[in-house]
Design a binder for these strands. Sequence first.
DNA 1: CCAGATATCTGACTAAAGTCAGACATCATG
DNA 2: CATGATGTCTGACTTTAGTCAGATATCTGG
Lengths: 290, 290
Amino acid sequence: MLDPVSRVRRFNRAVTSAVGALDTSFLGRGRPLGAARVLNAIGHGRADVAEIRDYLGLDSGLMSRLLRSLEDEGLVETTAHADDARRRVARLTRTGRREFAAYEALSNTQAEDFLAQHSQREALLAAMDLIASALTRERVTLEEMDPRSGQARYCLGEYYAELGRRFKQGFDVSLSRDPDAKDMRRPRGTFIVAMSDALPIGCVGLKGTDYGYAEIKRLWVAPAARGLRLGRRLMEAAEDAARELGITLLRLDTNSALPEAGQLYRTTGWREIPRFNDDPYPDLFFEKGI
Amino acid sequence: MLDPVSRVRRFNRAVTSAVGALDTSFLGRGRPLGAARVLNAIGHGRADVAEIRDYLGLDSGLMSRLLRSLEDEGLVETTAHADDARRRVARLTRTGRREFAAYEALSNTQAEDFLAQHSQREALLAAMDLIASALTRERVTLEEMDPRSGQARYCLGEYYAELGRRFKQGFDVSLSRDPDAKDMRRPRGTFIVAMSDALPIGCVGLKGTDYGYAEIKRLWVAPAARGLRLGRRLMEAAEDAARELGITLLRLDTNSALPEAGQLYRTTGWREIPRFNDDPYPDLFFEKGI
DNA sequence: CCAGATATCTGACTAAAGTCAGACATCATG
DNA sequence: CATGATGTCTGACTTTAGTCAGATATCTGG
């Protein structure tokens, strides 16, 4: 009765019957589910008709009819794609935006109600994050972005906070050699953020130097996303980017208070080398030729 | 982007799209969802047609037709209810049991696959338990049962294990005044287990004595079910049972290492009294007239 | 035994989702 | 510029789920 399989199946049952309720945000506005889903996909920024169809898994005939019904309601306009007149691009009209906002408000209210009904809020949210990350693991995308972007800054903030918790002496970023943003932008380097359904859940920086090697910096994975081998994926992406930039040697520093990081490096072809900088925080140094 | 509402909505999206996959256990055997759900409900021991209809939320006409289609397939037989010939009772034929077993195997395999795909197994399972408990909170049923039953013994085992973790000196049940099972059975007392979807998630004992009062013992709530006010519900049920048994005074002992328990008692009409027994573990004693 | 309530069943219907083949315009490529 | 591929649209269709009214048999309480 308490074996792991039963527990998973209990979760499935609980969620399956709750999903009707979880998903009522798509109802209650007098529109069939299909049309509501298309409207919301467009509202969330998906414009290309083929992309929406793919995202929602719809047949082209069905998609066409759903779009037509939204057009008839005056919620959506479609135009030909600028580069390819076969493709159509959909966007919301003013009325459509209002309707979309109403759906958003319903969704938000419903989520708030759910939270309001439960104490143990933080535990519940953490559990939801963990499961959402596990379920969407395959759909985690790695995106290069400016290290000054909102998503990147969020990741870095979480990274610093975690170092503060895990280093005995705490962590003060101003004492560390904080990389210049321009060293983590092409063509010197790059910054990669792992996005799960619009939520940043991990990052890594590739920092260019003038010394014949580049450095890996700021590798971080959100607690809820650990165990999904995301660290490995991020490192591979950083190495790929380094190769594209013509870099042949990588270095990094880390701290023995982060054993899972050391473990990752050791099992992916990095070898320990002597200290190569005077940053006060790291006590382990690695190098890898690529 | 990281406010609680967004996190809940992200979970909903992740789960909604995964539930299609989670629920494929009901597909893949060439039967529409409705018929598969009825078959599985019967397989899981629901026999009364009205009960199945209620459980699955089906219209009586639809239910009738689904049953008929299962009968046509030779999977189900229906007979009149022994006490009330208007009601029908369904049960699986031999073929039906085989088909049900195939669904069970599919569900198990799918749950196993899910687990196999993810490391962080224990964390994931704990998160799933937490969410399942939160979602099914309204459907938690309190059932009186023999304290020697499997479910009761499971709860007690978990309870002792938790005391062992939380008491500095550990916990050895043989040193404590372990209540006699017959003192926690009617008419002396009772034992109540909270069941969530066939999983025991909490308990409380009402132990009769010969001294003009009864004692509350073994109040326990599974970690994944905390914060749902289940402790309160269990205590209310125990008090109701006590009133039915003509008991007018309740006592209990507890330990200050369990602050949430003390808090519960204090806010529900219990008042602290001096030690009334020589059990080595408790250091707090309460009384309540009902 | 009667009246009203209850459980199931049947027929007639609708809505929604989805499938499939073919039409049409447009694109990429040799 | 001919050819095959691509993206969208339309018409004709099926399956599934669900609703509703009424028929039938049975039960319960007076």
